[in-house]
Amino acid sequence: MELQILPTSIIGSYPKPRWLLRMYSLYELGRLPEEDFREAVKDASVAVLREHERAGVDIPWDGEMGRSEMTEYFTAKISGFKFYGPVRVWGNAYFNKAAAVSKLEYSEPLVLDEFRWIKANTTREIVKVPITGPYTIAEWSFNEYYSSKEELAFELARILNREFTLLEKEGATFIQIDEPAMLNHPDEVPIAVEAINRAVKGVNVKFGLHVCYSNYNLLADYFDEINVSQFALEFANRGFREMEFLKKLTHGELGFGAVDVHNPRIETPEEVAKAIRKVMKYIEPERLYVNPDCGLKLLDRSIAYQKLVNMVKGVEIIRKELAKEGKESIPFRRSA
């Protein structure tokens, strides 16, 4: 399968429409039947999927309309977790940090329904399925049961491997493992790497790994040991500084974070193009995908959309330049 050079994609989340947020509130208060809530989520899912496609994104997703939050969604579906209440992440952003209080078990599919719905509704050939990784779920949970975080992370890897296997059977071709916490503890990076490798073992799809707001030097030493074909990293928020570590990415692809999701200012296409030119000093265009830094959910929806539009326009500027060199497409690679 061939893709246009510099394929554009998303990282995962997108602002939920206001009407959907109201549905969430009503549902949580018990004032909306589950059937109606599920229908609202599906409608929002298609609306956002179309929005991604309209912006020109090549490999879209539905902005995680059915997910309350990136770890809570999963810990709520895996048995053995308990919730004590929300924990603040920064400013006024919270998440429901679960506690592992008994042996964790895979009790139901995690994202299978989402994938089936999006696959059935997209106009694109490939969609990217973002799933929070085993180490991040472990790190962003309290542990009252397992003897170590390592044990907890490996248990989660076992559970996620079951889900990945299921997704492959259903026709998924691109899964992104979100591991924003994997560099939290420099000494534990090998545990995170092992957990990711256990989670992907035996599954033949393209795997990406998303990490953000971290010291990437800690990741760079493991580029060749992590069994994924793409690393999707945030760069815009740090002003495209500190790129030297990319010299160690000699085989894998880079998912280049070209727009800042923590700043409402909309980057111009020219700014996006300039950033891509900068990263091409480290990674040749045949190994580059372009995406926002991270999930866009904290932005106003109209700003998020315009950021995607300008990101794609920025990519088109570079595509024209590359076309002059005869570089117009790349293969969809499953392995590094």
Partner: peptide, 30 residues
């Protein structure tokens, strides 16, 4: 918002930048 903010907004000579992890926590400071 965190142990530095908003104090640093009241210090001349300081601008407030992006988010960084506060040690090894899922907690970020500006």
């Amino acid at each position: 918002d965190d142990i530095f903010n908003p104090l640093i907004r009241f210090i001349d000579g300081v601008e407030v930048n992006g988010l960084f992890k506060f040690y090894e926590n899922n907690f970020f400071y500006r």
